[in-house]
Each structure stands twice: as C-alpha cells, then as structure tokens.
C-alpha cells in the first residue's frame, strides 16, 4: 500500500516479478551472459542513478533483497511471478516456477505463482501443466511464443497444439494468459513482435484473459488495435512504466494512448523486478500528471485511474482481496481535476 503525500492511498499489485539466478556458474553458454547483460542495460538505462545495482548483485539477488525491495520498501501488497525458463541458456533455468515456488511457499499471501507451457511439449507437457496447476493452485501462465527449439522457429497461439493447451487452461481455471511479445533472439522472416495471433486466440477463448506484457512494445500500435477490438485483451505495463523517469513526455503519450484504446480497466502495473525497483516506480507513477500541453489530446490521470492501474485491475483478475479502505470508492472520480498540477520536467 502506498500513501501519497496528498493522503491518497493505493493498493499495489506488481504483476510481473522475477526471482532469477543469472550467476556465472548457472550460465550454460555465452547466451546466459548475453541475456543478463541485456537486462542489466535495461536496468541501468531507465533507472534513476541511485537505484542502479552492481552487476554482481543484479545477476543474483537474495530472497531478503527481494522481500525488502518489494514489500518493505516498494509498497507492493501482492506480487505475481511470471516464470521465464531459458533452460538453453541457464543450467538450472533462469526464473522457473520451481524457483519462484520457494518464495511462494514461505510467503503465500504475498505472491501469486504462475507457470508456463510450450505447445511443442505435446501430450507430456499437458500432463505436466496439470500437475503444476494442481500442486500450486495456479491461475495464470506466462507464454513466450518466439522461442526457437530444434527446427521450430517459434510458435503461434493459433497453432493446433497451442489451442489444446489454451483449452486445457480453460478447463483447469487457469484464466490469465500472460503473453510475452518482447525482444526475441530468434531469427524470423516475419516480425517476431507480431501480436496478431493474440487477436485470434482472444476470440477463440473468451473465457481467458490475455495480458500482453509490455503492452506489445515495440508494437504498441498493433497491440492497441487488438485491444480495442477484444475485450479480453489487457496490457501489462512492465518496461513501459520506467520510461516515466527519463522520458516522462513519452510515458504520458503511451499511457494516454492506452487509456484511449483500452480504457482504464484493462491496464495492469508492473516493475519487472529486479530490472526495476518498485519504490521509485510507484512514487513517480502516483506523482505523474499528463503534461499540461498534452491534456487536450490525452486528458488527465486521476487518482481513480491510478488506483485501478496500480492494483485494483489486477486484483479483479486474480481475485485478490483488497482491504475495504483501499477499494474504489463510488462514484468513481472521472471529472477533470481542479487542483494545480506539479510541473513535469520536459526532456
């Protein structure tokens, strides 16, 4: 929970966190090093200077670091694990369901544990999915469609086997499908960031919610266009959120576009921890206003909208109990604010 200087309170659900191990002894090859270095550049590039970690800590942070950063310092009420296996790069995997489960089991009220699947695992993968869902009462999965395996150059949500897995998700009540469309390392003649398969899957599986991570960035335009047509497509703000510090004007445009195309009820907030620390992200987001010269185009970010994005939307998606005093008050404040807004730096 975050209480802003003006007294407004916000329930915070961080919908995209990792508990990774990218230590050198876990690297399977040069890609293990290359992968974490790339994450580290994201971290260094968009974090305020005082929040930049040494590379050694960034590769492997402790359970204590994570608990303190998210819950003691970072205002997070509940955090959602999105596993990224990368077993081709890391001997024991990068951020697996099994590793995340260590923290989930110790702090069951703090974490929501998701898992992952790959349609190319066929029948055996379906069984494994069922086991994991049963063992940890899982409600969501993280999918990475651009992953290369053997002769396969990735897959689509519309592939027959992917449809079987989605059908299994529906059957098991795993209703939250987080789709990663971010940077890929795999060579493709088509655009690897292409989000169009989400469109078809969302139509075929109206019972499932498809949360497109990073709001499809670098294909924000394609994502928004799908989002406007498919009510069960949401956007996750991981990677978009930290632009607020170095590129506040662009962040204002991006959030303005998302509010226009998707509306305020289908956007979730995330730090992508440990790439970024939630403390500064939460503080800056709550403090943020659409710059004055852009409000004609994009309107205002009211406390009510911020409350939904920071936590209430995700709470709805995952049935998270929100303390009564932190729920949305009726009627929602939708009118323009009349208070004077703080100056937003232009860069």
């Amino acid at each position: 929970m975050y209480r802003a200087p003006d007294g407004e309170q916000y329930f915070v659900v961080d919908t995209h966190v990792h508990y990774w191990d990218a230590s050198p002894e876990n690297w399977a090859n040069k890609y293990g090093e290359g992968f974490i270095n790339c994450f580290y550049d994201y971290h260094r590039n968009l974090s305020p200077e005082e929040w930049v970690w040494p590379i050694e800590k960034f590769r492997l942070y402790s359970e204590e670091d994570m608990m303190r950063d998210l819950f003691d310092e970072g205002y997070v009420d509940v955090a959602i694990f999105l596993p990224t296996y990368l077993t081709d790069f890391y001997r024991r995997g990068f951020n697996t369901t099994e590793r995340d489960a260590i923290l989930k089991e110790k702090h069951p009220d703090r974490f929501i544990l998701n898992t992952s699947w790959d349609p190319r695992d066929g029948e055996a993968g379906l069984e494994k999915l069922e086991e994991k869902v049963e063992k940890w009462d899982i409600k969501g999965v993280k999918l990475y469609t651009a992953e290369w395996r053997g002769d396969s150059r990735g897959w689509k949500l519309t592939d027959p086997w992917a449809e079987r897995y989605l059908d299994k998700c529906r059957e098991l009540g795993v209703t939250n499908v987080h789709v990663h469309k971010g940077p890929t390392i795999w060579p493709l003649t088509r655009d690897a960031f292409d989000v169009s398969d989400v469109d078809d899957a969302a139509t075929s599986f109206p019972e499932l919610t498809f949360i497109v991570e990073h709001c499809g960035v670098p294909r924000l335009e394609d994502f928004c266009w799908i989002g406007v047509q498919e009510p069960n497509v949401w956007g996750g703000l991981a990677v978009v959120a930290p632009f607020i510090h170095t590129r506040p004007r662009w962040f204002g445009k991006a959030i303005g576009e998302l509010l226009y195309w998707l509306g305020e009820d289908r956007i979730t907030w995330a730090s992508d921890y440990a790439i970024w620390h939630p403390k500064w992200l939460v503080e800056q987001f709550v403090d943020f206003q659409i710059p004055d010269d852009m409000t004609d185009e994009y309107g205002q970010l009211t406390p009510s909208i911020k409350r939904k994005i920071l936590g209430l939307n995700a709470a709805r998606l995952y049935d998270i109990a929100v303390p009564e005093d932190l729920r949305e008050r009726e009627p929602a404040e939708t009118g323009p604010e009349v208070t004077e807004k703080p100056a937003v730096p232009t860069s």
Partner: peptide, 20 residues
C-alpha cells in the same frame, strides 16, 4: 498518431540502450 508514438518510444529506448 499511435503509430508515431510507438516509433518515437522505440527510438528513444534504442538510443538510450545504445548509449548505456
């Protein structure tokens, strides 16, 4: 406009990452 905002954001991110 959405197209322009998307490209602008990508360019800002890529420039920043290259510099870093």
């Amino acid at each position: 406009r959405l197209m322009r905002v998307s490209i602008e954001g990508n360019a800002a991110f890529c420039r920043g990452l290259l510099a870093t």
